[in-house]
Design a protein around this nucleic acid. Sequence first.
RNA 1: CGGAGAGUAGUUCAGAUGGCUAGAACGUACGCUUUGGGAGCGUAAGGUCGCAGGUUCGAGUCCUGUCUCUCCGACCA
Length: 409
Amino acid sequence: MQLSKLAFQVSKNPPANADTINHQLLVQAGYVRQLMAGVYTYTPLGLRVLRNIEKIIREEMNAVGGQEVLMPALHPKANWLATDGWNKIDVLFKLKSRTGKDYALGQSHEEIVTPLAKEVINSYKDLPLALYQIQWKYRDELRSKSGILRGREFLMKDMYSFHETQADFDRFYAEVKQAYLRIFQRLGLTAKATEASGGNFTEKVSYEFMVLTDAGEDDIFYCDACDYCVNQEIAKVKAGDACPKCGATLQAARASEVGNVFDLGQKFAKDFDVTFTKADGSRDYPIMGSYGIGVSRCMGVIVEKYHDEQGIIWPTSIAPAQAIILALNGAEAYAQEVYQALTKQGVSVLLDDRSESAGSKFAAADLLGVPVRLVVSARNGKQIEWKERTSTTNKLASLEEVCQWLKSS
RNA sequence: CGGAGAGUAGUUCAGAUGGCUAGAACGUACGCUUUGGGAGCGUAAGGUCGCAGGUUCGAGUCCUGUCUCUCCGACCA
């Protein structure tokens, strides 16, 4: 990607009306554009980040046996009447066609996936089944806020599993919980599996995956010594209390929920009359689970966690590129050469070939937050200056060395 | 939905007590100069001052309504 041809460029001015870090930096760096409160466009570079996050999630979901589908976002009223969600869920967006028919926009997909799964679940031999998708969700929030952290439209990975027995569900539930922790770790986030209420979904305890950040909206109590963590909304403890698991002192913190897992029991299977034949010939309802990850919210939380005065600092795993080449004056031709060589080697690299001053290019590279900055300058001959975004020092290297380092990173 | 702040050039903003052709910086176009931390000089384009009413000889400025954004709250799978 050559910056001179890029549709959305970095801006010298931070946007007005953006108080939250992720909102401010993502807009200023040109990763997103706001259409209205809680609704954003992802630009070519922003979309790259989103896709990189998706890729990690897909790998882990596929690894636990999830099969990807893409369900509709536009739903008929009937499915939401079946669970009474049409009346009970106040964040459900409802709309009417010009012929007077009622529709809903998907805020989650239990009402769609359950009747869908009914088609393929006949026998215990068809279980377990896990379907997932990565899709836009719509929620009629009273107030959306904090940049891309709480949108009325947001990208979510939602998986739904169906099981023959509670034991099999418990096994899968634990596997997904581990997969989630791996996903967040790969995204550069330290997520705490937090006990929380099941909301409208279930009476049982659910787990929310919380990342500590002041930009979040949840208050949690957690233990530094072990993995105990509980949402304040159901907490029977408080900060300063002894951890019920290990006895250490509990801390209070603000956090953002980046994922959750729910034990749905047989509620939805019963609502949609999904049954299967067991080995003994009797019929039963499958046990269901649902598992969400806020993909776009993750992107926002990552910016909240990884930035400095100069701009964003993307974790390498999801950065829009591995490196950015700055073509300083007198070295434009060689910079092109380096860009072509690295691209040919499969390295994802940006080239700042704009007719900007050196200072402007340095500032843009910092703001964009690409992990490695490669300065190509007449002053260094064929040597390339390597500097990591997180480092204050740099070193000179040959094109071959740079290529090796990037390919192994 | 309650409370607070804000809507003026592509962007960020300035425009006391109402007063003539509404300004700046950045960005953009052209020319010259310049090239290691958001360069300099010159020229130019770019605005129904969110929208709709009203008061007034005269409204970006005052009044009413309305829309939108941000923050706090309520709310939140």
